[in-house]
């Protein structure tokens, strides 16, 4: 579904992604790990179309369409979802109105009539259950006054509502205690099917105890430098990112010499 080739991108004139290659097929779970500053969040922002980032090279295809040519809202309609590392607070916009606008925008894109009020409320109720989201939170302003855990649960709730084909979860585990982590991970697992895929971006291995990846990629200095199975995450946990640094930087030094 997603084919990323030699993707390069910069922000404020600084090149962060320096040629990323990645292929994701339906039913797969990919984990992208890497040290701070490797470009993990940048990759998620670029794939979801944040206008603050400039693509300087390479390509990304999503179900055969040019992903990079689409505005963010069309990427969403086509089935791409980004779970934010820092979900944005939007005071004055209620979760309910926000989700209704989102659902109906997508339906309009596919030339479908707006969802009826009854169907919408029923759907909201069902999806809330996926992440045990409090009814009260759904009636409040988007993320406003939510705790860290509530914000992350709210991201998975939105994912459940939008039913994406590919979800990119950017450090969904950061700032979560064990219980919240379990609820969020279970939510993700419930939504998993043979037709959709997930990219989990994480700094630590612990999330991968809950969400089992098929592939683990190590992103370092703007490139995927290593790809393996779940065992790679465990090895990384054991040996630390210095292992990568030494190996990759060592290699480069060798080449340069």
């Amino acid at each position: 579904m997603l084919k990323v080739k030699e993707l390069r991108a910069e922000i404020n004139g600084k090149e962060i992604l320096k040629g990323v290659n990645l292929e994701v097929r339906p039913g797969e779970v990919h984990a992208i790990m890497g040290p701070n500053g490797a470009g993990k969040s940048t990759l998620s922002m670029v794939l979801s179309g944040n206008p603050a980032y400039t693509v300087t090279g390479g390509e990304a295809e999503f179900y055969g369409k040019d992903l990079l040519a689409m505005p963010p809202e069309v990427r969403s309609h086509e089935g791409l979802f980004l779970g934010f590392q820092y979900p944005v607070e939007i005071p004055g916009v209620s979760m309910v109105n926000f989700m209704r606008a989102a659902i109906n925008a997508k339906r309009e894109y596919f030339h479908e009539p707006p969802m009826s009020a009854t169907d919408f409320l029923k759907m909201m109720r069902e999806k809330r259950a996926v992440v045990e989201l409090d009814t009260k939170l759904a009636s409040r302003s988007v993320n406003e006054g939510f705790s860290g855990g509530e914000k992350k649960r709210n991201e998975i709730f939105q994912m459940a509502v939008l039913e994406p084909r590919l979800s990119i979860l950017d450090e969904t585990d950061s700032g979560l205690d064990i219980d919240a982590l379990r609820i969020v991970a279970e939510g993700v697992n419930k939504l998993k099917s043979a037709d959709n895929a997930t990219i989990v971006i994480t700094h630590y291995q612990r999330l991968l105890d809950y969400i089992k990846p098929d592939f683990v990629h190590i992103l370092y200095k703007g490139r995927i430098v290593m790809t393996g199975g779940p065992e790679l995450a465990l090895e990384l946990e054991e040996r630390g990112y210095d292992w990568i640094r030494n190996q990759i930087d060592g290699e480069n030094e060798g080449k340069e010499a």
Binding site: S48, G49, N50, P51, A52, P71, P72, E73, R75, S76, H77, F81, L82, F84, P87, V88, I90, F98, M99, A101, A102, I103, A105, K106, Y109, Q158, L162
Partner: peptide, 14 residues
């Protein structure tokens, strides 16, 4: 701009 982007990733146009 971040609020706008967040909303756009959920399918709302600008």
């Amino acid at each position: 701009p971040l609020q706008l982007f967040y909303m756009r990733t959920r399918g709302l146009d600008e």
